[in-house]
Nucleic acid binder design. Structure first.
Length: 445
RNA sequence: UCCUCGGUAGCUCAACAGGCAGAGCGGCCGGCUGUUAACCGGUUGGCUGUAGGUUCGAGUCCUACCCGAGGAGCCA
């Protein structure tokens, strides 16, 4: 009696009679010999059908199989270095095969397709090997995020998705009708987590977040996932230590547990192996100096124009990309000009024009994956900032309260899941790092 | 919102200077005992994004619009 197994555990069944349930990924017909590439969600395996080893009915059934037909297949597991697949190196010598459904005209072929076509068929595209690999890495990233935080004193505290007001401006918020009043889809759970730390010390929220930005680039989604840790009694230096430990753990976990997927994606893992603490730290001022040098040395006039920047401006993508090329690890850039950042950031001691903020830029040109800061803890300073930014005090009554009842230095950051997955996988577009991306002009399927 | 590129068969793309709209893949039929997006032979397949214009003649030139991609800005 053949045992029902999953492809990912096939190496444990060498020589055994097994059954797998899955779908036909690809078929090569050699006449009296057929090679079936079968996937079951956990992996891909080659199944070999010899005409003389099966009944005529089984052989004909194998010949009738179309791409993505569902099937139950039985046979003997044998080791064979020629066998492709994930994990690969093993194949099944087929003895029996049952067709569940013959798929009709599956649209995606194992060849190059255009972006629009693939996005229109995202519900099917996720079955393709590379997409499957990326999304498996994503699942591991998500689990590593929770593992690290849960085991380092952070408690999960989810924050609302429907919110009454903007935390950083309203133009990029999705508005909804909340029983006749406007409510907005969240851009960040940070302000709520600043309340939660006074109950739990260290917290994190983890969920989807929404930005109605009309961004049309490979680095933007309108709906993306963000994890936002926040810690009481934490300053900017301590925050950077948390971030580098956290990010390193995520990367190393993927290297350990998703080696096959990263190999399938053609990822140069030696670049990821270098992602261990400590990460280099440079100030905004030092970053400007580096950019100035790059600008002087380049002969590329277009790049020179893109890299133009004056003190006080936030970095754009070209700046981040060029900066990260200078390092082989993620790099912290701290101390951004206060006016380029949000109202709640603690000013730098003795230099009020600078904030205690820090972004973490991923190497190889991937750019910003986290943004964080130490928050203002003094109630009077917070009131002053709200006024300066033209924000109504009434809307922030509860937030101001937090500075009145046992205020402490505290800090936090947000890490973008899709950007992290994109970087780890070495792919070039965020849309492949989430099962069903939401982008400007894309809400289907 | 701005800049650049693109839209031709189910898919990926050709089509010279305006002159019969083609190939590969897929599908279908046949052949092949080690294929890795197999290979070989046959076959199927078109409102050239939309509307208008120029011309004896438009996939090709002109105008407007629609859709997509990449980038800028903004950001994780």
């Amino acid at each position: 009696m053949a045992q029902l197994i999953r492809i990912q555990e096939i190496a444990d069944y060498e020589g055994a009679e097994v059954t797998i349930q899955g779908w036909l990924y690809h078929r090569t017909d050699k006449g009296k010999l057929q090679f079936l590439q079968v996937r079951d969600g956990t992996g891909f395996v080659q199944c070999v059908v010899f005409k003389q080893e099966v009944t005529p009915e089984v052989f004909a059934a194998a010949q009738s199989l179309t791409q993505e037909s569902s099937l139950v297949i039985s046979g003997t597991v044998r080791k064979d270095a020629r066998a492709p697949g994930v994990p690969g190196g093993y194949e099944i010598g087929v003895t029996d095969l049952k067709v569940i459904q013959l798929a009709q005209d599956y649209p995606i072929q194992p060849k190059e397709h255009g972006v629009e076509f693939l996005m229109d068929h995202r519900h099917l595209w996720v079955r393709s090997q590379l997409q499957w690999a990326v999304l498996r890495v994503r699942a591991t990233v998500v689990r590593a995020i929770r593992d690290w935080l849960d085991s380092h004193g952070f408690i999960n505290m989810d924050t609302p998705i429907l919110t009454p007001a903007a935390c950083e401006g309203t133009t990029t918020l999705f508005a909804t009708d909340y029983f006749g009043e406007p409510a907005y889809l969240t851009q960040s759970g940070q302000l709520y987590n600043e309340a939660n730390i006074y109950a739990f010390g260290r917290v994190y929220c983890f969920g989807p977040t929404f930005r109605a930005e009309k961004s049309k680039t490979r680095r933007h989604l309108t709906e993306f996932w963000m994890v936002e840790p926040e810690a009481a009694f934490c300053d900017l230096d301590q925050l950077m230590e948390i971030e580098e430990q956290f990010v390193s753990y995520i990367v190393q976990t993927c290297l350990r547990e998703r080696a096959k997927e990263l190999e399938l994606l053609g990822r140069d893992t030696s670049a990821l192996e270098k992602v261990v603490p400590p990460f280099p730290r440079i100030s905004y001022d030092e970053a400007l100096e580096i950019l100035r040098r790059i600008r002087e040395q380049t002969t590329d006039e277009e790049l020179k124009a893109l890299l133009a920047i004056t003190w006080g401006d936030d970095f754009g993508s070209p700046h981040e990309t060029e900066l990260t090329k200078q390092f082989d690890k993620p790099v912290f850039v701290y101390g951004y000009p206060a006016r380029a950042k949000a109202f709640y950031m603690e000013p730098w001691p003795g230099r009020p024009e600078i904030s205690k903020s820090v972004d973490l830029l991923a190497p190889e040109g991937y750019g910003e994956i986290t943004g964080g800061s130490e928050r203002i803890s003094d109630p009077d300073l917070l009131l002053q900032r709200l006024d300066e930014w033209g924000l109504p005090r009434e809307a922030f009554t509860w937030y101001i309260d937090l500075r009145k009842y046992g205020s402490v230095p505290h800090a936090g950051f947000g890490l973008g899941v899709e950007r992290t997955v994109t970087w780890i996988c070495g792919i070039d577009h965020l849309r492949e790092a989430i099962p069903f991306p939401r982008m400007l002009k894309r809400v289907y399927p």
